[in-house]
Design a protein around this nucleic acid. Sequence first.
DNA 1: GGACGCTCTTGAAACCTTTCATCCCAGGAG
DNA 2: CTCCTGGGATGAAAGGTTTCAAGAGCGTCC
Lengths: 358, 358
Amino acid sequence: MSVDDAEAVPERTRRRRAPKPHAAGVKAVAAAAGVSLGTVSNVLNRPEVVSPLTRAKVEAAMASLGFVRNESARQLRAGSSRILAYVMLDAGNPFFTDVAKGVEEAAQAAGLSVFLCTSSEDVDREAAYLDLLEQQRVQGILITPIDQNSSRLRKLPSRGTPVVVVDRALDDASHCSVAVNDVLGGELAISHLLELGHERIAYVGGPNTIGQVIDRRDGARRALRTAGRPMADLIELTTGALTVAEGRGAGQRLAGLPADRRPTAAFCANDLLALGLLQQCVSLGLRVPEDLAIVGYDDIEFAEAAAVPLTSVRQPRQLLGRTAAELLLDESSNPDHEHQRVTFTPELVVRTSTRGTL
Amino acid sequence: MSVDDAEAVPERTRRRRAPKPHAAGVKAVAAAAGVSLGTVSNVLNRPEVVSPLTRAKVEAAMASLGFVRNESARQLRAGSSRILAYVMLDAGNPFFTDVAKGVEEAAQAAGLSVFLCTSSEDVDREAAYLDLLEQQRVQGILITPIDQNSSRLRKLPSRGTPVVVVDRALDDASHCSVAVNDVLGGELAISHLLELGHERIAYVGGPNTIGQVIDRRDGARRALRTAGRPMADLIELTTGALTVAEGRGAGQRLAGLPADRRPTAAFCANDLLALGLLQQCVSLGLRVPEDLAIVGYDDIEFAEAAAVPLTSVRQPRQLLGRTAAELLLDESSNPDHEHQRVTFTPELVVRTSTRGTL
DNA sequence: GGACGCTCTTGAAACCTTTCATCCCAGGAG
DNA sequence: CTCCTGGGATGAAAGGTTTCAAGAGCGTCC
């Protein structure tokens, strides 16, 4: 008798796992509307092939059941995602959010959505996001990379996830890239300062692993060389990141130098640094531009509204994003897509921070 | 004979659709490693239960095949996503990116990733993102809503997607919210201006569908009432968005008024407006703060670095984001979670833009 | 009146992973 | 020598959608 009892028990214990709260699927909708699974799917994906009457029934059923299409299942079966991601260096930098705006514009025109991710200049986070996005099988990835030699980045395209590099020009032939000529930008900035008669010029930027920082510095050096000046005229102040706070720190260091060794002008790798530098220097009693002329980079909206309107190197931000997204869309839809390397030209915008100096 | 031929044809033509390029799945890995599907899955999800030797074999196979786990399939079966989303009003506003930073901090601590979405103050985009995220079955949604009465928003929690409203306090009991007392903030700003002796004060903000804009205005009105002033003293300049460009537009309008009717002070619904207003007024010849005192809102990093350092109402931005994310995590992990309504207190930061006026 | 064409609908198969009840096997206890 | 135990490995089933070959219903044409 004990044995019999034991066998009688496992009656209906075959429940495997508590599912999410009452999720109605296509099956439930089909049943409620009195049609087949396939028809519900057609209403969802090809509404034009189903008769108006049937469609109405199905739509009513969906509404009353609160049906929400399960994207995981859709994507698993259909194999394609309707999402595109932009991994940016720093969401706090208006330059990148402007680029993102351009990306969204182009994506929306193509009916895709954009997920923004921010690596915060941290290699591990960048890597983690790349893995995540690849696993999500997104349509494609736009990225302003920290580590441009990342093997992870290089492998993505061959495994089926198109990548477009934004604001960097990689020599790698495995993806498109859209960039602005940063070397030229650096040259523009320094040539401008040299023309104004400055002799000791600081280059404020870092860390030196970031491509943009390196290129702009190289441009600065080239301008000096072209002008026949010694390299020693360029005083490098390396920062830990491209932020306002780091700019303030650089300002502190710079203002602390004895007047006869202090540079009379500073070229910053981006506007955030320039704004921080400006703020700190002013508060420590240096006059801008009389004691220190400042040139920024990016020409973000706040550059013009700064304490002293900032001379800056302008980049076509939104255009950069839009172009990148368009290249990505082409790559994932056009079978004979060819990788391109688009380079825009920066432009110097002169404002008070360097006006009438010396 | 023709009949026999016809039957013989469909030999191996059953290919349905060209799949994505050579995607190696668990099955292929299992075969390559000489183990079963289940074992591969265990290596992925419970590495401790598989013997070191087997694990090594499987990991080698994964590496050599370039295996990338298919997140759609994982999520479909496992039922849970490791992603959390923050839908912000405007990625170009540093206030929101600072909030986002707080969100990421908390999410990372919990091992989750964050997708950022921006509604750009557009109701349709907000709706589209909410739909998308719900279909993606994300762990939860953090949102600074445009339309707080959106039925879409209200329905989400009951269907299984937890929602936390950020920077708004909804009366709705279906989700947590984290906010800063905007009415108080408005009061602080206006009281400050009244104390300085200003009589004609402008309120610059809009559109009037945005909760923050309304609350801050209500606070302004309340301060007037408390001071026994007529409401007519508050001149409302409505803007189309909370951006620098709109701020400039408001400046244009304001500077165009005859001097005897022009306000002597302006309170802006956020710092972007204030910066635009400041910039335009200065360029049109008004002195700040002598001719026009300005108070902003948010105390973003750029407020202090502005042409005239901006008096502003400070909010605990990162804390806001972190708290919101923590509430969300609690909601989705703690079975007896109770909805909360956290309210922080804003703080007035006085700077030159209102200093020593009148 | 039979064949054909057309529009709409159907339902089984496939997508890739995770889960869990079983099974296998070696070693220890009786 | 058998029985048990427990660490590991197994593989069928399940999860919700899309796809597509095939079927149903109905009007038209010769």
